[in-house]
Design a binder for these strands. Sequence first.
DNA 1: CGGCAGTTTGACACTTCTCAAACTGTGTGG
DNA 2: CCACACAGTTTGAGAAGTGTCAAACTGCCG
Lengths: 222, 222
Amino acid sequence: MHELLRLAPLFQGLSDKELSPFVHTAQRQQFKPGEMLFAAGDVAEAFFLLIKGNVRLYRLSPEGREKVIEIVPSGQTFAEAIVFLNKPYPVFANALDETEVLRIPAKVMLKELHNNSDLAVHMLARLSIHLHKFVNDIHALTLSNAKQRIAGYLLAFIDEQAQQHKVCLPANKATIASRLGLQPETFSRVWSSLKKEEIILEYNDHIVIHSPDALRALLDPS
Amino acid sequence: MHELLRLAPLFQGLSDKELSPFVHTAQRQQFKPGEMLFAAGDVAEAFFLLIKGNVRLYRLSPEGREKVIEIVPSGQTFAEAIVFLNKPYPVFANALDETEVLRIPAKVMLKELHNNSDLAVHMLARLSIHLHKFVNDIHALTLSNAKQRIAGYLLAFIDEQAQQHKVCLPANKATIASRLGLQPETFSRVWSSLKKEEIILEYNDHIVIHSPDALRALLDPS
DNA sequence: CGGCAGTTTGACACTTCTCAAACTGTGTGG
DNA sequence: CCACACAGTTTGAGAAGTGTCAAACTGCCG
């Protein structure tokens, strides 16, 4: 259990003793593809550490359409921010795959944060990174066209995985399109143009980014 | 000086003693309209508390156009997130009006956060609120059309000021347009349609939101 | 085989962007 | 006091990008 918690950057570097309040109160939960973890408006008494799978965070527009805010990969915590806000969840969350999470009570977290300033600084660092990512997103969602957004999305992948240019998409294309603020049709058209230009190659279960430089060129036409 | 610091939600509820490290290291700075506080890429050794005026945080697109990420009103802190990230500023910041800030060294903040878990929890709460606002923004910037974005922007004002439907815009229209991911021309057209429908009234130095309900109806066509 | 979800393609409509020009108010210098 | 310049805003016309609706296609599973 300690090892599971240390999966998350949030808990890395903490001693077994520091982690024990979480070990004793966290619940392990499993979800099937499509199952809901929570709904927007639900009372928020816990945040989550994603052990396995991918989770989709989304909202509904007034017209009832879904807008994906984030696709959370395993190893990440999510909904941490609600620990401090006495508010219901602002988004819906459902599992994209066979998914496993640790459900960590907000009360426990809040108490430990008051006791342990190291943990608090960890969490601050994590929220800061998150905030900066959102700044990036806001920038990308408004200033660029569909091709640039997809380029940026793909580049974020090879930066994170750092090693290879082989990428497994975390969700189906319609979900990624929504995350990027695009219609599935628009996404599909741009996607096939990237394939036609041989910037990306598509296989059954993964893609290969054949020319990252071409993607960068789309974003930085200097 | 203590009173100035307590302007910010971040420092509210802290004792004089807890505040003294900041009192002794914070620098008071003044800026004229248009002057730069910092540029994207600058080494980030401090964050800011805005005492007077409004500050515009923006980025440059690859093509060199400005995209406003945030318009910071007085009383708020900004660029706090860089305290934890060993990175340069991700945005440009310039003054919109005659502006006064407290410049607070990141090192001091970091040290105090380790000593004072109350302060850390305060800051966590503040970043959480910020994060939730960005979630709102991302949602608004992608799912809605120009009229809905402007409606949402105006409604945020009367919610915050809570009292009246009289609003002083914090920046010129082109800046607000950029913040909303719109061209100045598009903003102007929608703006005049709102005036024609008498949903808003425009005066020399302020506007009056004559029919908040009409704005809400634009966002929630249930 | 049939059904289904996910994806792709096509044709068209519509919003928004772009470029250009005119208009407004304000401040400056003659 | 007027003429002028200037930034900010507004208006117009056309182009471009994306959304919408409909239909066909694909792979997978019962």
